[in-house]
Write a protein that binds this DNA or RNA. Structure first.
Lengths: 228, 228
DNA sequence: CATTGGTGTATGGCATGCCAGACTTTCAGC
DNA sequence: GCTGAAAGTCTGGCATGCCATACACCAATG
């Protein structure tokens, strides 16, 4: 499985009921497969607070946070609904991802330590193009970690936090679309080029390669993925 | 005029106490000049709720939202503090701004209607390089609106919402750094080039120009602005 | 049968009060 | 005079209950 990409919890133990409830709800919503199309989209404050064994106050605070992140929508006196992302919204997210990761690549080329860049190979070299087809699940994880690693190299907390938020939304799609040998083969080649550009400290090129790579994913989703 | 970029308040009148309190606090914090260095950084839930004439519940919800946006920091059983942005954080924000606005320019070049692009001239042509020195305040506003207009042309709600958030934080700095004739003169030239690229539908070039323009601002801030 | 008005119910918004933890103050002991 | 512990105070977290409003259901009316 993929506890690999679990966000590292901030040092301070966030023990408040609000925080724990937030995490629980977020995980539940994120892992809610987009396949169970007719899962109940409506949440009930009182029922949930009873399930969690807490009062409505911390639950409401957790829900408010999820609302702000766009995972749920709170409609006054109507209800709380799990948000279904449209394809257009997913495409927007990937576009923003492309913008931020490409900028991260530029920063990484300028400032990341050589050893850190070298470690990017670990995420790519483990797979040959042929193996990908066989171990697609593993590759999907490695692929995601590769992109997160580049963002990490930039050393920008802001970029990391924004993309983490996007990742929560895009996860399901990303795992689906990667399940295609063609894209995977191309993807491996792209990744190697990106690493080469970083190692050559060619920020412009790394930026461009990352952008084009991710925009290709966007176009692919736009063309071939269907939701709803 | 510029009702063009006015934030369109969500259709539904957000009359909830939480929303109104949030807006009020956000405005108060944002407009708190970074010059009154020793303004009280600590907020008191009970005192604020009394000032607003509401109970602590909606106030807490508003504060929680501000906490998530990074404008305040809530420390359990310690207090609520107005966050002072470090220069490094401001620089990160401008970097993200550069990434997103440049991507927006690329999108705008591809999809924005010709008339909309043409309206960008309004934000620039009103000033000659010489006038800028005289009407710096006006130019500063026009400058900001120009960049928001480009982002608007992209038609991406996500990019707009993220940059709006950044703008709240960066506003004070941006107004300070623009107060320099040299940068302003260069800025006007840059803006005209950007418009030209958009009109030529040259997405690559528009993207690059916007990125370089904003990264120059970043470098300027990094070098010459002092906070704290 | 369609429409409209009224009433009951469900749901989130808000007010209020108590609680645990952290800081401050004070006073005993050396 | 100094140190340390204990009590008091301040602060945000949480539980609980009431309220206004949106909606559904139903009856009365044309």
């Amino acid at each position: 499985m993929s506890e690999l990409v679990l966000k590292i919890r901030p040092i301070e133990e966030t023990q408040s009921l609000k925080s724990r409830t937030y995490e629980a709800l977020k995980a539940a919503i994120s892992n809610m497969s987009i396949y169970d199309a007719n899962a109940e989209l409506r949440l009930d404050e009182r029922a949930l607070s009873a399930q969690f064994g807490i009062s409505r106050t911390p639950l409401r605070e957790a829900l408010a946070q999820l609302d702000q992140e766009g995972l749920v929508r709170i409609v006054p006196r109507r209800g709380i609904y799990i948000v279904r992302k449209t394809k257009a919204e997913i495409v927007e997210m990937i576009t923003v991802w492309a913008a931020l990761e490409s900028m991260a690549a530029r920063l990484a080329a300028a400032t990341a330590p050589q050893e850190a860049i070298a470690r990017l190979h670990d995420h790519v070299d483990a797979f040959t193009a042929d193996e990908v087809a066989l171990r697609m699940g593993e590759y999907s994880d490695a692929n995601i970690r590769f992109h997160q690693a580049i963002i990490g190299l930039a050393g920008s907390r802001l970029i990391s936090s924004i993309t983490d938020g996007l990742f929560t939304h895009v996860r399901a799609i990303r795992q689906r679309t990667i399940f295609e040998a063609d894209r995977a083969r191309r993807s491996i080649a792209d990744h190697k080029d990106i690493i080469a550009a970083l190692e050559a400290r060619d920020g412009e090129r790394a930026e461009r390669l990352v952008r084009e790579h991710t925009l290709r994913l966007r176009d692919h989703v736009e063309r071939y993925v269907t939701l709803d």
